[in-house]
Simulated scan of single mutants.
Amino acid sequence: MTRLSDIPRAPLALGLAGLIPFVWGALTVIDPALQAWGVQTLGPRFVGPYVMLFYGAIILSFMSGVLWGFATKAEEQVAATGYALSVIPALWAFFMTGGGPVWAGASLIAGFVGLLGLDWLFWRYGLAPAWWMTLRVLLTAIVVICLAVGVLA
């Protein structure tokens, strides 16, 4: 596996920046004063589990598009399988994030862990860059930890 230093700067920086809503949401679950400030300043949708759940569903959908792009590099049956697999994260987010914040958070955790498996599959077939799994493991670990804070709070 590659090292963090092998990941191009733009994907690493953008990937880390994409963690901000998850980290912010987890911090506002842990710190009531920060949550109160966030509600007053940003509104209730942008704190606690709510920001993590809404943003998590968006990111799973975005990652479906990333996987679809990887599938375009394949041919015939591998491409068809890649296209079919690539829609799973978006469908998961659509169908599995109802039922309240605990259920939705647990479903998103499962969705991101499942996405990591799809990332590995696309990477294993040479459709993703060599550094892909190093980036995805890091980002997924942080996302899952943050969502777990919301689920377990």
Results as ranks from 00 to 15, higher is better:
Val78Trp: 01
Leu115Gly: 12
Ser86Pro: 04
Ala10Gln: 13
Ala33Phe: 06
Ser5Asp: 08
Pro11Thr: 05
Gly56Asn: 11
Gly18Gln: 06
Trp24Tyr: 03
Gly25Ala: 11
Leu14Ile: 15
Leu34Gln: 03
Leu138Gln: 05
Ala26Val: 10
Gly56Cys: 06
Lys73Gly: 14
Ile145Asn: 02
Gly65Trp: 09
Trp123Phe: 03
Pro44Arg: 14
Tyr125Ser: 08
Gly69Pro: 14
Val87Cys: 02
Phe112Ser: 06
Val23Met: 01
Ala36Phe: 06
Arg45Tyr: 10
Leu4Gln: 06
Asp6His: 10
Gly114Pro: 11
Leu4Gly: 05
Val47Asp: 07
Trp120Met: 09
Arg9Phe: 10
Ala17Glu: 02
Ala110Glu: 03
Met63Glu: 08
Ala110Ser: 15
Leu127Met: 09
Thr28Gln: 01
Leu4Asp: 02
Arg3His: 13
Gln77Met: 12
Ile20Asn: 00
Leu152Phe: 12
Leu127His: 13
Gln35Phe: 02
Gly117His: 06
Trp131Tyr: 15
Ala128Val: 02
Ala79Tyr: 10
Trp24Ser: 10
Leu108Pro: 12
Leu19Trp: 13
Leu12Phe: 07
Leu138Met: 15
Pro44Met: 03
Asp6Gly: 01
Val113Ile: 15
Trp24Thr: 03
Asp31His: 11
Leu139Gly: 00
Gly105Trp: 00
Trp37Ile: 13
Leu16His: 08
Thr81Glu: 05
Gly15Val: 03
Gly126Trp: 02
Leu14Pro: 03
Ile88Lys: 04
Gly111Trp: 05
Ala13Ser: 10
Leu4Val: 13
Tyr50Met: 09
Ala10Glu: 08
Ala71Val: 07
Ala71Pro: 11
Tyr83Lys: 05
Gly25Tyr: 08
Ala153Asn: 11
Ala90Arg: 05
Asp6Gln: 09
Leu14Glu: 00
Ala13Met: 13
Trp132Pro: 08
Glu76Thr: 12
Trp68Ile: 09
Ala71Gln: 04
Leu138Arg: 07
Gly100Thr: 02
Phe95Lys: 12
Val151Met: 08
Ile142Asp: 01
Val102Ala: 11
Gly114Trp: 12
Phe95Ser: 09
Thr28Asp: 09
Gly65Leu: 07
Val39Cys: 01
Met96Pro: 10
Thr28His: 00
Gly65Val: 08
Ala57Leu: 01
Ile7Ser: 00
Leu16Ala: 12
Thr81Phe: 06
Met63Asp: 04
Leu16Glu: 01
Trp37Val: 06
Val66Arg: 11
Trp92Arg: 13
Gly82His: 02
Arg45Glu: 12
Trp24Glu: 09
Tyr55His: 15
Arg45Ser: 11
